[in-house]
């Protein structure tokens, strides 16, 4: 049943997927996986820098987070968490299907995973758009200069935007949100202080979720590539390694979101 072993003990030539510089499919697989895990660790450390910035900010300026939390919708965050966890499950099932040579279910699970990735981005878009509308963007972004004019012209606070000028957060919107949160009327100085807090929070929020969203976009790209290969029938149990490695990447993206969700959306 098994292909005959080579004299050297390896399986040379027994698999069309075995590169000549590897002893056996096992060694080839282990090497690929080792490399992937090392890459994942660099990703953890890469995100670690931003988590560190978060920690330092939260320790030094708790008010930034106390004020900022009113501007995120926990329901949307929870929805995205559920979407990503579900997509992790379907990715794990895709890996399993690939290992067992179940080509139809492999295609199905990959398609569902891809769809979940897109759904995650869709929800993220809704959230980002809400911030963008009220000029709640990181730092003193001068994007208006590049895009010609600010988004949504005609409302009072945005009339002041001219090319090259910095974004000004929508203070009316901020006042409304803070009133909802139980700060009915704020003096000018108090409001300016809180606007600055919210600006800092939005900066941290966009950097963390933006880098994560970039990873989701890359993930969607490689899952789409896998899906095309799966539809063409290129993936079978003997070369399921790409599915496995993409799966590991996708789970890491999920893991990072598992931390981002409580750290950004669930501050009270």
């Amino acid at each position: 049943m098994n292909p005959p072993k080579h004299e050297s003990g390896g399986d040379e030539g027994s698999s069309p997927y075995l590169a000549h510089h590897f002893e056996s499919p096992q060694q080839q697989y282990d090497s690929a996986k080792l490399g992937m895990w090392i890459f994942l660790v660099t990703e953890v450390l890469f995100f670690g820098g931003l988590f560190c910035a978060y920690g330092v900010y939260r320790a030094n300026h708790p008010a930034v987070f106390a004020d900022g939390q009113h501007f995120l919708d926990t329901r949307l965050g929870a929805l995205n968490t559920a979407i990503l966890i579900f997509s992790s499950l379907t990715m794990a099932l895709a890996v399993r299907s690939a290992q067992l040579d179940q080509k139809l279910s492999l295609t199905g699970w990959l398609a569902i995973t891809l769809f979940c990735g897109l759904a995650f981005l869709g929800v993220k878009f809704v959230e980002y758009h809400g911030k963008w509308e009220h000029q709640l963007v990181p730092g003193q972004a001068r994007l208006t200069y590049w895009f010609g004019s600010g988004p949504e012209r005609g409302t009072s606070h945005q009339d002041s935007i001219t090319p090259g000028k910095e974004f000004r957060p929508d203070e009316v919107h901020i006042q409304e949100k803070l009133a909802d949160a139980g700060y009915p009327s704020l003096g000018e100085r108090e409001l300016a202080y809180r606007v600055n807090n919210i600006r800092s929070f939005v900066g941290i929020y966009f950097m963390l979720t933006g880098l994560h969203a970039l990873h989701v976009i890359i993930g969607i790209g490689i899952i789409a590539w896998l899906l095309i290969r799966a539809i063409r029938g290129h993936i079978e149990s003997r070369n399921f390694t790409p599915v496995d490695l993409v799966g590991l990447y996708w789970h890491l993206v999920d893991l990072i979101w598992i931390f981002l969700f409580p750290l950004l959306y669930l501050i009270h």
């Binding site: 098994n2 292909p3 698999s15 966890i85 579900f86 992790s88 499950l89 290992q99 969700f261």
Partner: peptide
Amino acid sequence: LDDSVSSVAHVVPIRVLYSVFFALMVLT
């Protein structure tokens, strides 16, 4: 278990995957 070409890695039982998913949702 044997050194067959087709399986170089362990296949996770389907029930384990669904249980882990359920646990993750409960923890969320």
